[in-house]
Design a protein around this nucleic acid. Structure first.
Length: 223
DNA sequence: AATTAAGCCAACCGCAAAAGC
DNA sequence: GGCTTTTGCGGTTGGCTTAAT
């Protein structure tokens, strides 16, 4: 038995948002701010589920959203971050001001995956694809084996290949709400240096359930 | 011009974590 | 500490648009 729905489905609209609905949501948030999504629809006079309102605001109506195509620089940032974080779209989005996790996820699936395949790189593992010598087809089993878990490559690949030891500085914008990148003193910007380390032990590698466990990060104040 | 296929993106769904009581 | 509610995330889907036949 699942959890009860978050809202009375028979009383909510679904599908594409109308201009009027958008305007109601914008007006409400401009006055009251966002948050408390559960009660927002009723208060704003919208026949929508709170989750739907939140998604609409975050992915489409937010004033700070950047519109338009991704730049080549953004492409490379996404590829680099994905190689480090896996399908953690919200974390990747936090490093790209004006972009949403949904937008990046869609862009990854429609553009970047193909781009990497064309470069001969497995988009999930970020390692060279293995060519099937008899057929010439690209062997995508690597991707299939990885698809069950966004981070599973960290266990299988590490066993097959020497772990990479990278010191990579991510010279990209900070996001004020990201607890990782937020400067602890709350002032100014702190450059964030991610230091990626080889797993300490096999046990640690086996039991790692999230990528951040495998690396540490630190910030340093610019002041 | 009509039909089909592929590309694209907004929105939905289910789950897990966080927050509240 | 345990239960319930709310929020946020990632995967998936549906439908619109464009390209190819």
């Amino acid at each position: 038995m699942g959890r009860s729905p978050c809202c009375e489905k028979q009383h909510t609209n679904k599908g594409a948002w109308t201009k009027e609905e958008d305007q109601r949501l914008i007006n409400y948030i401009q006055i009251h701010g966002d948050g408390c999504w559960r009660s927002l629809p009723k208060a704003a006079g919208l026949l929508r589920c709170g989750k739907s309102c939140r998604l609409r605001w975050i992915n489409y109506l937010r004033p700070d959203l950047k519109r338009g195509n991704f730049t080549p620089e953004e492409d490379e940032i996404i590829i680099n971050l994905h190689s480090l974080l896996g399908n953690k779209w919200s974390l990747i989005a936090a490093r790209l001001p004006g972009r949403t996790d949904n937008e990046i996820k869609n862009y990854w699936n429609t553009h970047i995956k193909r781009k990497l395949y064309n470069r001969g790189i497995n988009p999930q593992t970020h390692r060279p694809l293995v060519n099937n010598s008899s057929t010439g087809d690209i062997d995508r089993r690597q991707e299939d084996s990885h698809s069950n878990s966004s981070n599973s490559c960290l266990t299988t690949e590490v066993e097959e290949n020497p772990p990479l030891n990278l010191n990579l500085e991510l010279s990209i914008g900070l996001h004020p709400h990201n607890p990782i990148t937020k400067n602890p003193n709350g002032k100014g910007e702190a450059p964030v240096l991610f230091q990626f380390c080889a797993p300490q032990t096999e046990l640690e590698t086996e039991t790692s359930s999230s990528v951040p466990h495998l690396f540490r990060y630190y910030t340093s104040s610019t002041s």
